[in-house]
Nucleic acid binder design. Structure first.
Length: 282
DNA sequence: ATCCAGGAAAACG
DNA sequence: CGTTTTCATGGA
């Protein structure tokens, strides 16, 4: 089985990376093997102390997907600005942001609104099972994530089985509007952060939070700082104590928080967000 | 039962 | 323009 040896200056934790909530389609066995579908392939991977052992993809793909080319120690130096983020970093050593396929990431975060992680995972699994292509691996069935036209082709009906609730028309309408997945992806990729954000928010069901997640997790726009209920709480308690919690997050509050984070943590504030989120209490 | 979860659209002033 | 209401689902 191919492997990648992780030298001492290349910090990485597979469990932190796949378990922190940035991805929804990886599963871990008791023995520490992770199984996931990325693009058209099933990947099986585990980590012992200093090696990544895997099958289902080439070494270059694994390295790229897990952002092993990023100088994480340097990134952490730049975001490590106070004792609170410092504690979060210490608790989640080796956490890296992966490079998610953008379309799957977009649908995932449309499905994530006002939901908890187990519910989101179930919805994404339903969509893949209903519309994706089956792949057999070790005698089990896995499913690719469907492209936009596969979802929109048969109309709204197939989505009803996926338990999306009021998010169903969001997924359907967005699948209809993204007719050319690759071209759409390149359009977003070319744009700078703020422009890409506005472009993504034209999609039905994509608001500020989902747009920031997509930009951070799929397009490596590290200045994105997604603000969900957890991050809002953390920021209010530890950084911006003047913010009034009781009303739900308004658009203005969202901008206040992300602009503060951009200044405080710097150009890699998205990494700070993920460490704060992963280290949350709850 | 009641509240909450990786929120966003639509309706309302 | 900013603010409030509504929207399904499952877990605690």
């Amino acid at each position: 089985m191919p492997k990648i040896s992780l030298s001492a200056d290349l910090p990485f934790s597979l469990d932190q990376t796949l378990g922190c909530g940035q991805v929804f389609r990886w599963e871990r066995t008791e023995e520490g093997w992770w199984y996931g579908v990325v693009g058209g392939r099933v990947i099986k991977i585990r980590q012992d102390e200093s090696n990544l052992i895997f099958e289902g993809a080439k070494t270059a793909f694994i390295s790229h997907y897990f952002s092993l080319d990023l100088d994480l120690e340097q990134v952490i130096k730049t975001i490590d600005q106070d004792q609170f983020i410092h504690a979060a970093i210490s608790r989640c050593t080796g956490l890296r942001l992966v490079r998610q396929p953008p379309w799957e990431c977009t649908v995932s975060y449309i499905c994530s609104t006002n939901s908890n992680i187990p519910t989101i995972r179930r919805r994404i699994a339903f969509i893949a099972e209903r519309f994706g292509k089956v792949i057999e691996f070790e005698g089990k069935k896995y499913y690719t994530f469907p492209d936009p036209s596969s979802i929109s082709y048969e109309g709204n009906d197939g989505l009803t089985e996926c338990m999306l609730g009021y998010r169903q028309p969001y997924v359907f309408r967005t699948s209809c509007s993204v007719t050319d997945e690759k071209q759409w992806e390149e359009t977003i990729r070319r744009l700078p952060y703020e422009d890409a954000r506005k472009e993504l928010m034209k999609l039905h069901g994509v608001g500020p939070k989902a747009a920031d997640c997509i930009l951070l997790f799929s397009f490596q726009k590290y200045e994105a700082f997604p603000v969900d209920v957890w991050i809002r709480r953390i920021m209010q308690q530890n950084y911006i104590k003047t913010l009034d919690l009781k009303a739900g997050l308004t658009n203005r509050d969202y901008d206040t928080i992300r602009r503060f984070a951009r200044k405080h943590f710097g150009e890699y504030c998205g990494y700070a967000q993920e460490y704060l989120y992963a280290a949350r209490e709850g």
